[in-house]
């Protein structure tokens, strides 16, 4: 049957992993913030800022890895704004996050338009190329599906492992998990609640920005308006789906990528009798269903959304 053929094709899995890559960055970033007790709804804008800043740096001649660095810095900058508003000042995390999304998105568009007032089609850069790893890339199936991705996808996969290691194997990760559950436990042991939370939000936001940068520097080769298209919000949902665990975050992102790759193929195979919008909805509907199943039992970090002030019990 056609559906089986689709699922068995190496090109299908190659596409699924490619589509999942920005989401992996985004979910990792969101779960680091939330593990420390801060919801970061600035994610959608931080994706945009990362996409814009990384691409523009490369366009101005910074080199691809230079672009990645600039994107991370841009994300960290907006993360710092969110962290200052929500951690020491204790403002509503929802309001601040949406504010950061609006600010980062508008600033990105503004910068783009100011730098390029007269272009009608966006200028292109030379993006990351698919890797050609000796031996590995030549393996049947997995060589195409996994080892012919770009360097940024490899970075995302490595970061899943790194994030898991830091959270569960290092003293820093222990402190981050503690501060998201009961900040007083951290303070009583002589650590800084503010320092941990601000640090987590800045680093998490940098990862989110890499998700945006992947889009302009690896998946496509240009920046255009509206290109993030809700990917940030999907990451927020996937974080709950992942129960705030990096390994499950990878699975969730891959699942979404697979749904998306599948619907594109299904459209061309059997798409004649249904409007294409139905197929476009599919990954989102399936995500919502998966989320409902998982989120009913979701064990939120207990101090998520709860501001904490010095000297308070």
């Amino acid at each position: 049957m056609e559906i089986i053929d689709i699922l068995l094709a190496a090109s299908f899995w190659e596409a699924a992993i490619r589509i999942a890559t920005p989401l992996i960055f985004g979910v990792l970033g969101a779960l680091i913030c939330e593990r420390a007790g801060v919801l970061n709804l600035g994610i959608e804008g931080i994706f945009t800022a990362g996409a814009m800043a990384g691409w523009m740096a490369v366009w101005l001649g910074a080199g691809l890895w230079g672009g990645v660095l600039v994107a991370a810095l841009a994300g960290g900058f907006f993360g710092l704004i969110h962290a200052i508003l929500t951690v020491p000042l204790g403002l509503s995390q929802h309001v601040s996050g949406i504010g950061v999304t609006l600010l980062a998105t508008s600033l990105s568009y503004f910068t783009y338009r100011t730098a390029l007032p007269d272009v009608s089609s966006p200028p292109r850069i030379e993006p990351f190329r698919p890797l050609d790893i000796p031996f590995l890339s030549d393996l049947p199936f997995i060589g195409q599906a996994l080892f012919s991705q770009t360097a940024m996808t490899m970075l995302a996969l490595v970061l899943v492992f790194v994030t898991g290691w830091v959270l569960y194997r290092t003293p820093l990760g222990l402190a981050i998990r503690a501060v998201g559950d009961n900040p007083s436990s951290v303070e009583a042991q002589g650590l800084s609640v503010y320092g941990l939370r601000i640090g987590a939000v800045v680093v998490g936001s940098s990862l989110m920005a890499l998700g945006g940068a992947f889009l302009t520097m690896s998946a496509f080769d240009a920046f255009f308006f509206g290109m993030i298209n809700g990917r940030g919000w999907v990451c927020i949902a996937l974080t709950v789906f992942a129960s705030w665990r990096p390994g499950k975050a990878l699975i969730g992102a891959l699942l979404f990528g697979a749904f998306d790759a599948f619907q594109v193929r299904l459209q061309t195979e059997v798409g004649a009798f249904l409007p294409s919008q139905v197929f476009l909805m599919m990954p989102y509907i399936l995500s919502i269903i998966a989320l409902i199943v998982v989120a009913r039992k979701a064990d939120y970090p207990k101090a998520l959304l709860v501001p904490w002030f010095k000297g308070q019990r």
Partner: peptide, 19 residues
Amino acid sequence: TLAENLTGLDNIVLGTEPI
């Protein structure tokens, strides 16, 4: 002042080693 998601050991060790 305990983080309920961590084990007793983790709560005790928290903050006692270089971060």
